[in-house]
């Protein structure tokens, strides 16, 4: 058998199982992103609140979910959720745990970005007759988005890799698919190396998309050092 035989497609090899795992990893990360962003946004707004209780809760949230090991957060959600809200799937547990962590880190990024947009921008928009909501959406958000993008990209890359930890609660994503194949074929080096290379590919593709988004978000803004 050729050295890549175990990676064959179909019934005899593990290529199709690995591909299915890769696809599940991508879906998990993509599904986590909007939920995590929503949490991060909400918590960032909480931290800006003038009410001490609200901002304190926002800080507490960030401290907890930035401080806990991601692996432990996943266990807590997977084994803890059924006690509070009923049974959840491995995918949902992974999604919630990753979104909680992504939200905690992103709230810091978004908070920094919100503070980075001068107050005059909002005042100018309101002077032009924008309602508070419209001013936020059309004037503030695009600027917050531009400032937050590099930080959010970083959080995305971290989260993408953290999806591998969801394998410990029996979700057959890329890591676990590789794990099952490595054990069944007795070729751990080959399969873990393939897993590493696929994660690396996901990271590289993400970086290209992020760079494109950053260029797009930065349209019309002169920056030093960029051709």
């Amino acid at each position: 058998m050729s050295p890549l035989g175990p990676l064959a497609w179909g019934a005899s090899g593990w290529g199709d199982e690995i591909a299915a795992g890769l696809w599940l990893t991508v879906r998990l990360a993509l599904a986590t992103l909007p939920v995590g962003l929503a949490i991060g946004f909400g918590v960032a707004l909480m931290k800006q609140s003038r009410l001490r209780v609200v901002s304190g809760l926002g800080e507490l949230y960030t401290t907890v979910f930035r401080g806990l090991p991601e692996l432990l957060t996943i266990f807590l959600v997977y084994f803890g959720a059924p006690r509070l809200v009923g049974d959840i799937s491995g995918f949902a547990a992974g999604l919630i745990a990753l979104a909680l962590v992504f939200g905690a880190f992103s709230s810091e990024v978004l908070l920094g970005a919100m503070r980075g947009v001068p107050d005059g921008q909002r005042e100018a928009a309101e002077a032009l007759g924008f309602s508070t909501g419209a001013a936020f959406r059309h004037v503030m958000l695009p600027q917050v988005w531009r400032l937050a993008l590099p930080g959010l990209t970083n959080n995305w890359l971290v989260m993408l890799k953290d999806t591998s930890l969801v394998s410990v609660v029996a979700l057959t994503e890329l890591m676990r698919a590789s794990d099952v194949a490595a054990r069944a074929t007795r070729e751990p080096f080959l399969f873990y190396l393939v897993a590493c290379l696929l994660y690396l590919a996901l990271s590289i593709v993400s970086s290209f998309i992020a760079a494109w988004l950053e260029r797009r978000a930065g349209r019309g803004i002169p920056t030093a050092g960029r051709a």
């Binding site: 599904a31 939920v35 009923g86 049974d87 799937s89 949902a92």
Partner: peptide, 11 residues
């Protein structure tokens, strides 16, 4: 996405 998560809390 949130709805999808909530729906998976099948009793």
């Amino acid at each position: 996405a949130i709805a999808a998560v909530v729906l998976t809390f099948a009793p």
